[in-house]
């Protein structure tokens, strides 16, 4: 059943990353991060984007390290890992695209 854990790792990583970014978004709005500027932009966006990119890196490591092979289980593991990466990429892209804290 190790393959099942591998298969779920991608979606679980997405769920965790999404929750963390969502929570940080609220914390940032409460603590006034949008008003702080850093050399590369608004602190709110920079912090959230940094966590996002860190999560994407973990997704990449997962894909890199996952067991590969021709069996059905290995295919499912690969699907799970890629689905997680694409989900994190798409659902957290609004960090860069939309306004925050209204």
């Amino acid at each position: 059943m190790r393959w099942a854990a591998w298969m779920l790792a991608g979606p679980l990583l997405w769920a965790g990353l999404f929750s963390v970014v969502y929570a940080l978004h609220g914390v940032g709005c409460a603590w006034g991060w949008p008003a702080l500027t850093t050399p590369i932009g608004q602190a709110q966006v920079v912090i959230l984007a940094a966590v996002w990119v860190g999560g994407l890196a973990l997704h990449a490591i997962l894909i890199w390290q996952m067991p590969r092979g021709p069996s059905r289980e290995d295919r499912l593991v690969s699907y799970g890992a890629w689905i997680g990466l694409v989900a994190s990429l798409l659902t957290l892209a609004p960090i860069l695209l939309t306004s925050t804290c209204f």
Binding site: L90, P94, L97, T98, S99, F102
Partner: peptide, 17 residues
């Protein structure tokens, strides 16, 4: 779905003060 969500964001941004 991405097109619809994108449209939703665009509308949402438009009604923000």
């Amino acid at each position: 779905l991405v097109a619809l969500v994108g449209y939703g964001f665009w509308v949402g941004e438009r009604i923000l003060p």
